[in-house]
Design a protein around this nucleic acid. Structure first.
Lengths: 212, 212
DNA sequence: ATTTAAAAATAACAATGTTAAGTTAACGAC
DNA sequence: GTCGTTAACTTAACATTGTTATTTTTAAAT
């Protein structure tokens, strides 16, 4: 029963209702639980109606994840005004790991699964906007630490430093998310692995060990 | 037309034929291309016959990947008799990265996708057999380097060292495999990133920079 | 020759993403 | 006020998937 003529605000509301329903399934049961029919049922529509709001399932999922990518950027934002560049840097990493491990399904979706190549022009995320783009935040944090003379003098490319740190931290998070319960590996406690990784990065990249 | 009574060697041959067909699809078109029907067609059987040889699709895929996990272990084995512990260590890492990046689909399957928790008792891979178990190889390589006094004296747990290095290298491989074409990131050249990662690990973990 | 059971195929089911074809009802035009 | 028009939505339907149930074929065993 279509009460017809929806203002564009109402349409937007339906869109986000769909996204919320999808997110609910997504977070608690993983991406395989997100079927068009299940999402539709939760939102009180028929499955085919979702196609009035999203081109296909991939676009729906992308929209959900994009929205939460922005949440990541906002979670990290709180660390950006720590005045000491080194502390800012460390807190940034800390928050990143925490986001990854408390939102494993989102993290998986962002960085651990194949996607059609992402076209920044089509994304809902504004590239280089530090409010939304966590990668540009990382570049910023590393660059300012670099200007502060924190890194070894042989390291001359902040982007390369950033990509190396990101890879290392990502590896930690990714293995934890996917293989934490793997009986094959006799994992050391997570906290120990985090600390070991942080120390490795610091000793490996920085001029001298910081105050402690 | 079933010519009946297959010797167990013949049955094994069919099994590996199925696995080879699956691998072919898997390698060149990714895991989504591996449908039971497609595999069956390649091997000249009907789809349902595959269930005579594998319990379900997951088990088939697992068998394929397990076989190639053993190949990884054998590729790494060649580095195990390098006499200098440090060189052995470095070559081991080099070969690991090379395997990951030349077999991205296998690597994805091994370490980048969700699995039902792996029970070592049911695996075709023999845990702790250095011929088959790459993880135990890693532990061995790190432990011997540790005994050789290569690492900083504050590092007292070879398993923790190994897990940290693995995570770092894995992060490098995983990001390359999934996000290499992502226009969002202005990636530095792969070689530069590999070298930066290796250097970070070495300066971060080792007592002193090696001969050069 | 008849029976038996292994080896395979065909038919069929349920779930999924998606498209095509209706259905309902609010609005504008006369 | 009646009558299209069309937005908003639903129901049917299709193709593809993994998988099971049922049936067929055929080499061997008796």
């Amino acid at each position: 029963m279509p009460p017809k003529v929806k203002t564009s605000a109402e349409k937007q509301a339906v869109r986000t209702a769909i996204m919320d329903a999808a997110r609910e399934l997504f977070i608690h049961q993983g991406v395989e639980a997100v079927t068009m029919r299940a999402v539709a049922q939760r939102v009180g529509y028929s499955a085919t109606s979702l196609y009035l709001y999203f081109g296909d399932k991939e676009q729906l999922l992308r929209a959900v994840v994009d929205a939460d990518v922005i949440k990541l950027a906002q979670a990290l934002k709180s660390t950006l005004n720590i005045s000491d560049p080194l502390q800012r840097f460390l807190q940034f990493g800390q928050h990143y790991v925490q986001f990854a491990l408390t939102n494993p399904n989102h993290y998986r979706m962002m960085f651990m699964t194949q996607h059609p190549p992402c076209d920044p022009a089509l994304s809902s995320i504004e590239q280089n906007n530090p409010e939304q783009d966590a990668y540009s935040q990382l570049i910023g944090v590393v660059t300012s630490a670099w200007h502060a003379g924190v890194f070894k003098p042989t390291l001359t490319d902040p982007a390369l430093i950033a990509q190396t740190i990101w890879a290392a931290i990502h590896g930690l998070c990714a293995l934890q998310i996917n293989l934490a319960d793997d009986a094959w590996i006799n994992w050391r406690p997570l906290e120990a692995r985090v600390q070991a990784m942080v120390e490795m990065c610091m000793y490996g990249l920085m001029k001298e060990t910081p105050h402690e």
